[in-house]
Design a binder for these strands. Sequence first.
DNA 1: TTTAAGAATGATAGCATTTATCATCAAAGG
DNA 2: CCTTTGATGATAAATGCTATCATTCTTAAA
Lengths: 141, 141
Amino acid sequence: MAAKQTGFVRKTKQREVILEVLRSTKSHPTADWVYQEVRKKMPNVSLGTIYRNLKTLTEMGEALELSYGSTYSRFDGNPENHYHFVCENCGSVIDLDIPVTDALEREVAEKTGHKAASHRLEFYGLCRDCQTNDSTNGSLH
Amino acid sequence: MAAKQTGFVRKTKQREVILEVLRSTKSHPTADWVYQEVRKKMPNVSLGTIYRNLKTLTEMGEALELSYGSTYSRFDGNPENHYHFVCENCGSVIDLDIPVTDALEREVAEKTGHKAASHRLEFYGLCRDCQTNDSTNGSLH
DNA sequence: TTTAAGAATGATAGCATTTATCATCAAAGG
DNA sequence: CCTTTGATGATAAATGCTATCATTCTTAAA
Ligand SMILES: [Zn+2]
Ligand SMILES: [Zn+2]
Ligand SMILES: [Zn+2]
Ligand SMILES: [Zn+2]
């Protein structure tokens, strides 16, 4: 579950491009979206390589894996902890510029005895765009 | 995606037992765990019926669907919003008795313009039990 | 620069969870 | 009792991801 047992991590062109693609967007893309983008630069890349490297990058602390809903993961090229807003109309996942409060973790430790090392906070509702456009149901991409 | 188009929801023995089982535990079980439990009372119940009704119950506001990680969903028989602690050692999901702060949603609306209708907060770390037992890796159930 | 070790890749098969299908059953209302 | 139609059980299928493996490529030592 941690890094490989005896091996080390080699630098590959594939992982480089994958990280490049991941950092080029704020859309918190799925593995398949990354796959399609990477294929534009490396037509022969394998989907398995995408999954493999997204996992490796996450373990290396270069990316975050998000999972809203149970069907698929999204990935985040910004590895620093931050909060997200998930629009229930258009499906977009938006970074929030509000401070990460470690005070919450202390509160949990004090009140419950469970020692939190991290926390995750997400908001669900209507994003700014979907409030003005009164479409009943957005595109969801 | 919402309730069925023209129909209505009938009362069935299956859904009754499923909700009963879901309310009988605080372990935030998976669909398969619910399935095994319901089978003890209704040996011929179908797994499809479990999934179908867990979805229906969630839509009815009688349960919550949680998704930590991307492999499977957990369900919560307590439909009121509350926060969870996920132990990274033993895998258990624990209800937290700390107040739900709607102030966070107001802060998001003020600072970002995105109108949050709900939010979700999870903590990750070592639960109380796993701190005292210095096992390197718990049972994960 | 060559060489050897083994990590990473591409291709593909496999797996686990969830959803769709459909004939049959049964809840609700008259 | 009878009709309507939502719900069920059994099963197939879809989805998202992981495992496998022969081959390729990275790395560091010779
Ligand atoms: Zn939106
Ligand atoms: Zn983000
Ligand atoms: Zn624990
Ligand atoms: Zn709970």
